[in-house]
Design a binder for these strands. Structure first.
Lengths: 339, 339
DNA sequence: GCTTTTTCTGAAAGAGCTTCCAATCAGCAA
DNA sequence: TTGCTGATTGGAAGCTCTTTCAGAAAAAGC
């Protein structure tokens, strides 16, 4: 691989001119720039990223820190879609991407901050992180531009952005969908209670109930920690005593668990019991019956996160939080009840 | 972030000792090394990766080049699992990982070689790449250590490894599974014919047929390009004229397409027609009926690829090709026919 | 006490690029 | 011709680390 020196020599200019040409400095004559590009192409040259990062104080690489994906039991591919979205947005820019997957179990010894610093990372996107993560606060405090997903950050120093769907609204919609179809005995299979998304979704369900003039006390909420297995167990146990008209699940995975329990109880979906999910993972359209759920566009979320991060870095972020549109995917797991 | 100099000063040693400590040189006393580590920890120091890559001639970062994942219609998560496997193996080593996703459509202008060189990448794992890819040969020729997935490389300069399951054997097994259950009218839904895996799988099916004393002429092979939609269309058309006892599909996605066509034709699975898949994507156990298929352990594949690559780099690769075990997942989509 | 061996030092030479500052060279007004 | 200005270009320091090397210091062996 040719170096900048060789290009400079062959083009009869100094190294600095070549560097400037490649970095869009205005003070190099267009003609010269073109000549340099021609030579560069001929020599198959392109700037070495390590050297570039090392010498420039500007941070050109952004990090994607993603927690939980490495766990063995992870079946959903949200993280991957987010990853794709981020990747695309970053690929279209002049930034480079560095990915850091962490396992909730064997936490890396390294803090995120350290990770970022040693790689010269100028901004990070955090996925699957929880606010009680030991390193989270450390990173937020560091004034490194960050975008967090599915978390709403309050300590605002202008360097933290976030993106997510409007979880409360989505929950309101799907609860409303059920209520409209005359379901009154709904049990909510919720996720981890401390979680931002969970709180929002609960809020949404309650709002939907209230706007129908229903009281909240009647609402049964089972906390299944976003786990298929947990949801299965909880639903199974619940069904031994009672039979609601619908299960409203805060994730597709939990919905799958619930469906299994329902079927095992000898009940039919949606004839006997309706079930709804949340997320719209790929397999939702392949279940029997196909699952009615809320679609989150994870690719879009990733893309927006990357763009927001860049905006923050360049100090022209208009808003600190971006809401991504969700969509209710109406399929076959909900029955309209007689009034 | 502290630099190596500050650590050296605070630990009362010279810079070179610190460097050596971090790079496992033997000529530094264990006691000193520990002292240095302590100081490093105290100062929150860890070597700057860019500087390290720049200065050392050793290439410490390996690249994962993955084609096709960015396409919009991609539903499978094989790539992600492979990615996870690679990531884990790399994280356990002292290497760093750089990921390069490419879209089959808008091919990056950059060749893989260029990508690798400008990032100082010392070895690459190629996933989803086809041998007729314009940049593939270029990379192979470059004597950069490479591990390719689902491709068998012939031009062996000792720098190319590969890992995959034994596709022929797997196909033999699943075909045998069908034959044992007295299926004689089997139509194969194959993938892209030029593809290595496809050829192997065809071979496997043929072998199974032969070992049952059956002739190959009777075998119908429909080429669906590994696409769910194509498979659906082809199966639908085929069913208008004939009704085989089983569809043997070379991917789960195609199996899904076929199942849809079968159901639409008013036929039941497995009572009227049996269907088998290949890969064992997550949703295979959620379909109705659950799909009998061949499980590929993509995480394991990724892990082995990374390990093989490191072995090749260090010149102690025992074998150039690693076979990963597959597994026949017996579920509910195949019926045993009366003899 | 003397020779080996082990450990450490300091300096220097990069690795390939960015960027500040100085130098050059037009063209043009004085 | 001289002086000045703005557009270009060149030089050199600096980013942080690795590696090598000659030799010094300390520890170990006999």
């Amino acid at each position: 691989m040719a170096t900048i020196k060789e290009v400079a020599k062959k083009a009869n200019v100094s190294v600095s001119v070549v560097s400037k040409s490649f970095n869009n400095y205005k003070d190099v004559k267009e003609e010269t720039r073109q000549r340099i590009f021609a030579v560069a192409k001929e020599l198959d040259y392109s700037p070495n990223i390590n050297a570039k990062n090392l010498s420039s104080k500007k941070r050109m690489t952004i990090g994607l820190i993603s927690s939980g994906v490495l766990n063995d039991n992870v079946k959903d591919s949200n993280a991957f879609d987010i990853f794709k979205g981020v990747y695309r947005a970053v690929a279209d820019s002049r930034f480079d991407l560095s990915i850091n997957l962490i396992d909730s179990k064997r936490q890396t010894q390294q803090s995120y901050v350290q990770y970022c610093r040693e790689r010269n990372i100028g901004g990070a996107i955090l996925q699957g992180i929880r606010t009680d993560d030991q390193y989270y606060k450390e990173l937020i405090d560091t004034s490194l531009p960050c975008v967090v997903l599915d978390i709403m950050n309050e300590s605002d120093n202008g360097m933290i952005g976030s993106v997510s769907i409007d979880n409360a609204k989505a929950a309101r919609e799907i609860a409303g969908y059920l209520l409209q179809r005359n379901h009154r005995d709904i049990v909510v299979i919720a996720g981890t209670p401390e979680t931002y998304v969970n709180k929002e979704r609960i809020k949404g369900v309650e709002e939907a109930l209230q706007s129908c003039g229903l009281e909240l006390e009647g609402l049964t909420v089972l906390e299944a920690d976003f786990s298929e297995e947990q949801a299965y167990l909880l639903a199974k146990k619940y069904l031994q005593e009672q039979q609601p008209t619908a299960f409203l699940c805060f994730s597709d995975l939990m919905a799958i668990g619930v469906m299994k329990a329902v079927k095992e109880a000898g009940l039919k979906i949606p004839e006997d019991i309706s079930v709804t999910g949340f997320d719209d993972l790929v397999f939702c359209s392949y279940t029997e019956p196909a699952l009615t759920t809320i679609r989150q566009d994870f690719i879009e979320i990733g893309k927006n996160a990357a763009q927001l991060l860049q905006a923050i870095k360049e100090n022209n972020a208009v808003k600190q939080h971006i809401w991504i549109e969700h969509q209710l995917m109406e399929r076959d797991s909900v029955k309209t009840l007689a009034n």
